[in-house]
C-alpha cells in the first residue's frame, strides 16, 4: 500500500509542516516515507505545496506525477492539482477559502470549513491540523497516536503546550 499525498495552499498556512507531520507519523509506524517541498520560484508568489509518500515498500521517486490524496487550502491549488488525483482518490478542501468545490466526480470529495472552525477555536493556525484529521479519518494512513507523537517530535518544545488543543482540532476534523 502506498499513500501519495499532495498538500497545497498559500505560504504561511502550515502546508509544509502539515506534510512533515504526516511523514513523521508514517515513519513512527515503520513505513517508508518521503517529504518533498516546493522550493522553486512559485514560493515567492506566495503558494506552497509538498509531496508526501507513505509506503509499505521502498519509496521510488519522491516526485509525484499523480496522487491518491489531495488537500488544498486555496483556489489556485485546486485548479492546479485537481487532475492529478487518481480515480477513486480523495480531495479535501478548506471550504472557508475554496468556496467552489472540485469538478471531479470520480473521487471522494470532503469540503471542510477548516479556517472557520479554527477561527471558532480561537487559533487560525489549526486549520491545517483540522484538514489532516479529515485525511487520517478518510484513509487511516496513520494512527491518531502516531500523529500525536509526531506533533511532539516535530514541534519545538516552546509550542508543546498547544498540542492538546491541536489534537482537539485534529479530532474535530476527523469527526466533520
Amino acid at each position: 500500500m502506498q499513500h501519495e499525498i499532495i498538500i497545497a495552499g498559500f505560504g504561511g498556512q502550515g502546508i509544509l509542516s502539515a506534510g512533515r507531520l504526516l511523514a513523521y507519523a508514517g515513519m513512527l509506524e515503520n513505513k517508508n516515507v518521503s517529504w518533498l517541498p516546493s522550493y522553486g520560484p512559485e514560493m515567492r508568489g506566495g503558494t506552497a505545496n509538498c509531496h508526501v509518500i507513505i509506503s509499505d515498500e521502498a519509496v521510488g521517486s519522491p516526485i509525484l506525477n499523480s496522487c491518491t490524496s489531495l488537500i488544498v487550502m486555496n483556489g489556485p491549488s485546486l485548479e492546479k492539482f485537481e487532475n492529478m488525483v487518481v480515480p477513486g482518490g480523495i480531495i479535501i478542501t478548506d471550504k472557508s477559502l475554496v468556496p467552489e468545490g472540485p469538478q471531479r466526480k470520480d473521487v471522494d470529495v470532503f469540503e471542510v470549513p477548516a479556517t472557520q472552525m479554527a477561527s471558532d477555536m480561537g487559533n487560525l493556525t489549526f486549520a491545517n491540523i483540522i484538514l489532516l484529521g479529515k485525511l487520517v479519518a478518510a484513509t487511516g494512513m496513520v494512527s491518531v497516536e502516531s500523529f500525536e507523537t509526531a506533533l511532539y517530535k516535530v514541534l519545538p518544545e516552546k509550542y508543546h503546550h498547544l498540542i492538546p488543543n491541536e489534537m482537539e482540532a485534529f479530532r474535530k476534523g476527523m469527526e466533520y
Partner: peptide, 10 residues
C-alpha cells in the same frame, strides 16, 4: 540536486 537537498527521508 535540489530534490535531494530539499527533501526529507528517514
Amino acid at each position: 540536486d535540489g530534490t535531494l537537498g530539499q527533501m526529507m527521508e528517514t
